[in-house]
Simulated scan of single mutants.
Amino acid sequence: MVKYTDIGVETRGHIGIIELQKPPLNFFDAVLIQQIANALDEFDANVDIRASVLCAQGKAFCAGADFKDPNRQETVASEAAKQGDPADNLGSISHLYIEAVRIYRANKPVVAAVHGAAIGGGLGLAVSADFRVTCPEARFVANFTKLGFHPGFGLTVALPELIGKNNAELMFYTSRRVTGEEAYRMGLANVLVPQDQVRAEALKLANEIAECSPLGLISTRATMRAELADRIHKATEHELKEQTWLRSTEDFREGVKATAERRTATFRGC
């Protein structure tokens, strides 16, 4: 099995487990997403694995991008950082979205154990799974517009498909925090349990799936998710185009600064 730096990977019977290991907040970047995609490829190549669980250490499931990453040293800063781009530490967003599409192209069912915040790209990661097990303490947040940004990770396709167009618009346009209970009611989460039972319940669901025929599972999932990865690919191309021009705006810098300072942003439309 491949060695990973940001995730832990193990197998239990017919279940593969991917654990995000960047506590406490499991910030989102291209390296993390690539490693998850690689692990899912491993599971696809292993005939004994029939389903997987995506879970996380720490306080959050995945708190999105770390726009105030303390490791951004001025002496080695990229040109984007020197120009004041708060998104430079994400790595190449185009590369990140290539890895996102790889996650959607995985062949076997994935259950996400969302025990804490799933924000921005972290929400995209949670939504990429087939099912989500969560708890009242969890928060699902599409905070892009509050940052002066555009949704990404294929969320403009995947989120409306789960919760309906108008609910997705509500999350996008307000950047509001959706609680675990609200997520369960709107169909964003499939199972709601106490926080200390989230991972166990996700494993239980994955094991229930794994009791079924492996070939039947792959065949049925391919039908149910037909062309989804292609639609995600097309969506990320558009999302990237919008994010590219928005990340150069004063509003984006103000949105990131205001979020870091826990205040309401003063946007000027430029």
Rank of each mutant, 00 (worst) to 15 (best):
N107P: 01
S94N: 13
S92Y: 04
Q197E: 12
E181K: 00
A129G: 03
T75I: 11
L192V: 00
A158W: 12
N166A: 14
E74S: 14
T179H: 09
Q197W: 13
G148C: 00
P136K: 11
I93C: 00
I103P: 03
L203F: 11
V114S: 01
R139P: 03
S128M: 05
Y173A: 07
Q197D: 09
N190G: 10
V178T: 15
T179R: 13
V111P: 09
L192W: 09
F153M: 15
S94H: 06
Q195I: 06
L155N: 12
V157D: 07
L125C: 09
A112V: 05
D85F: 05
G164P: 08
G91D: 06
V198R: 02
S78G: 08
K204E: 15
R185M: 14
I103S: 05
Q83G: 05
A87L: 05
I163T: 08
A112H: 10
G91F: 05
L125S: 11
D196V: 04
R139N: 12
L205R: 05
A183D: 00
D88L: 00
A126D: 13
P109E: 14
Q195V: 11
P194I: 12
A106E: 02
G121W: 11
R132Q: 15
L170Y: 12
S128E: 02
V127F: 10
G121K: 01
Y184C: 00
I98Y: 14
